[in-house]
Design a protein around this nucleic acid. Structure first.
Lengths: 224, 224
DNA sequence: CGTACTCTTGACTCTAATCAAAGTTGGTGG
DNA sequence: CCACCAACTTTGATTAGAGTCAAGAGTACG
């Protein structure tokens, strides 16, 4: 990250954004970066050390699936920020759509500070950030995944979140209509893809319970 | 809201969640509500007075398009919270998937307090919340809108956000591939729908600039 | 045990994807 | 300044995946 493209570095105090709004504004300097068109600003998997504010130009944040399918999450314009929602590492790539200037802020310190305070805003921020990351995952699912992949992803997610789901059998609390409206499909498609998974022995369906017989097969169908 | 279903009200101190994590935890009581299956917990458009934590059961948050198409944003399980990201009013509906118990917290005070502090966490929270609301809009677009509706929504959004865009002519910084990957379409479909809008006189395209000739027609194509 | 609801299956349609090719635009160097 | 090249955009023909419409099977519950 930040290694393959021309970057002009200038250490400055955070401009424009109110001082109180920045993490440790008085203690932490920000860095202004000039980035050329199509260059990477953040790579997916980068440790979340910094967050950014767009000063000029346009930035895209995106995720790539294994097979190259691409989903852009947001276009960011001057004044917009990105990277705040990352926890340990960034779960997206950010690239310059045009030539871009961004302001970069140290991020780690803020998180630590917030955590040790255990303050309201910290707890809320962490939960809001988690919600953003989940929404980002769902955007990829809805924008680029096939019906089969959506169903598989949904089952994996539920298996993880529902109590006892990690044991391999999950009792779905919602009906097929809700699943369809969540996955951007119709109820018929949800049924057909579930039955397909049952036919090929990946899952078993008894009433509203679904048993994951071959977790590996299910995981490999998710494609991300 | 909260009027058509059986609700058991009990005033308690916030349990489980650390005291410091709740807004004015010592001053504000929380209310525990029992909600029956399919009952509404929050209605889209409700003033954002409260936020919620799921204690038991499963909750869905969703949005409806004018014509009845429905997109579920999230399934919420015990421990999950919702409503924090709302600003003046909730932009989603929350309903009980199963019989549900939720904990309700006063929300308005926190927002006021945060705003007058002008603190780090407030600024970040507000921006994170805005990002969640935007992601929610995008989920509806990707899950339930047609190609034409996606294009129209995109153009309206860009007209609003790009400088000078409100004047009716917008210089898109990104190419067709990026637009396609943002809208969950292919580049060919983006072109075809744009050309369609041009043919019927809604927009004019000159190089990379797009002029919105009939804003009303474009807005009515967005469908939300 | 019958009624209502949810789920599953089948036949057919249609929107958007894919594959292919031609037309534009913009930048570069002669 | 103009010719050429590469990238981007538009258009056309065809395919495929999911949607729609319709009906039957399973299940829950009174």
């Amino acid at each position: 990250m930040l290694s393959t493209y021309t970057a002009t570095l200038v250490h400055v105090r955070p401009p424009q954004m109110p001082a109180g709004a920045m993490p440790q504004a008085r203690a932490t300097a920000s860095t202004r970066l000039s980035i050329e068109r199509d260059a990477e600003i953040v790579a997916q998997g980068d440790p979340a050390e910094y967050c950014y504010r767009v000063v000029s130009g346009c930035v895209r944040t995106l995720r790539l699936l294994e097979d190259g399918r691409r989903q852009i999450r947001e276009f960011l314009l001057p004044g917009d920020i990105f990277g705040w929602e990352s926890l340990d590492e960034h779960d997206f790539t950010a690239e310059a759509v045009t030539a871009v200037t961004v302001e970069r802020f140290s991020f780690g310190m803020m998180t630590d500070r917030n955590r040790q305070d255990g303050a309201l805003s910290s707890e809320i921020s962490l939960r809001l950030a988690a919600q953003i990351r989940r929404a980002g995952q769902h955007v990829v699912l809805l924008g680029r995944k096939t019906a089969s992949e959506r169903i598989a992803t949904f089952l994996m997610d539920m298996a993880q979140r529902l109590p006892g789901g990690s044991g391999g059998t999950i009792g779905l609390p919602m009906n097929r209509v809700d699943i369809a409206d969540y996955l951007g499909l119709t109820i018929e498609t949800v049924c057909r893809r579930l039955m397909e998974l049952r036919r090929n022995g990946t899952i078993a369906i008894t009433k509203s319970r679904i048993a994951i017989l071959r977790p590996g097969a299910l995981a490999s169908t998710c494609c991300d």
